[in-house]
């Protein structure tokens, strides 16, 4: 089992991996960064991988973590992260490794595998010993008629071993304990950085493409301290939580819109009813267009608003009235 340390802050800015130029999705592989983001920056992402310890279920998922483009963009704009084209990076890095570097990676992997094998072997022996101890205390308390067994625990030990456990490995713990030399296990590393050295920070950050109105709403809600997940489960853009979803129910189903966008009344009723039905508020929000800002200089104003992370966003919450 890995040591359960609280997540420490990664070196900033940290890399977020865009799979390749073809696949514009943002993934994180480093569990420490993921836990840290969750704890200190309210950034959740979605776990999309299979947990190797219990692979045949869909309830608890594992690494990697997929970040929404909105989340990635927010992190990049805040200067916490930068994006890296993962496929290009790998191709480049693997080609440029010297034989020595590769040799040291190989040696590290071998050492880790060896360590794991030893640890597992130790655990196995520990369990065997525990089981034996239990067995012995049971047998001594229930059947005291065992007259042939002497007071020497060592002999009794081996006797019960050979009769009850017919495997040769259980003999090892009592006799050849210090010289365990099992075959090394192999480990699939989760991340490539490390062992490879971290990709360099680009001079000009690449901003992920987002829908401007939904990004503004996202940044606004995130700035208010909410936790945000994709909203497809409730048919909205984002589900908004007042705290970590591990502990809290979501409060709002958020939908973004342009300020002057016509919203069908039926959507409003539908959203409001659905939200009320699942005890949440249906929240609609967008960037307010002030007088005189629209029309000409609109582009610049738009950009400024985006930069400032959801400034000028107004939100409304709709609930089913039940008159």
């Amino acid at each position: 089992m890995p040591a359960s340390n609280p997540p420490t802050a990664p070196d900033l800015p940290f890399p977020v991996f865009q799979v390749s130029s073809q696949v514009e999705r943002y993934l994180l592989y480093d569990i420490n960064t993921i836990s840290w983001l969750r704890k200190t920056h309210n950034i959740l992402g979605v776990l999309i991988g299979t947990l190797p310890q219990i692979p045949q279920q869909n309830i608890f998922l594992g690494l990697p973590l997929e970040l929404q483009p909105e989340e990635t963009r927010l992190l990049v704009e805040k200067g916490l992260a930068y994006t890296v084209n993962d496929l290009d990076r790998h191709t480049q890095d693997l080609a440029s490794q010297t034989p020595d570097q590769i040799e040291s990676i190989r040696a590290d992997l071998y050492r880790d595998g060896m360590e794991l094998a030893r640890e597992l072997e130790r655990n196995k022996q520990e369990q065997t010993r525990e089981a034996l101890k239990k067995l012995r205390s049971n047998s001594s308390s229930t059947t005291n008629s065992d007259s042939t067994a002497g007071p020497d625990p060592q002999t009794q030990d081996s006797a019960s071993e050979t009769t009850l456990f017919d495997s040769p490995s259980t003999k090892e713990p009592t006799q050849t304990k210090p010289t365990i030399n099992p075959k090394p296990w192999t480990i699939t590393p989760t991340t490539s950085y490390p062992p490879l050295s971290r990709p360099p920070v680009p001079l000009f950050p690449v901003l992920p493409k987002v829908n401007p109105s939904s990004y503004a709403l996202f940044a606004h809600l995130h700035g208010k301290g909410y936790f945000i997940t994709p909203g497809i489960r409730f048919g909205c853009h984002f589900s908004v939580y007042p705290g970590d979803p591990l502990r809290f129910h979501s409060h709002f189903l958020a939908m973004s819109a342009e300020w002057d966008e016509e919203i069908s009344l039926l959507d409003l009723v539908g959203g409001g009813r659905l939200g009320t039905g699942v005890k949440k508020g249906w929240l609609i929000g967008g960037v307010e267009e002030k007088e005189g800002e629209g029309g000409d200089g609109g582009d610049q104003a738009e950009k400024d608003k985006e930069k400032s992370g959801g400034a000028g966003v107004r939100t409304f919450c709709i609930e089913w009235g039940g008159m």
Partner: peptide
């Protein structure tokens, strides 16, 4: 959060 962190730290060993 700790349980999640631990669960996700388990290596893929063969």
């Amino acid at each position: 959060q700790q349980a999640m962190h631990d669960a996700l730290s388990v290596p893929r060993a063969h």
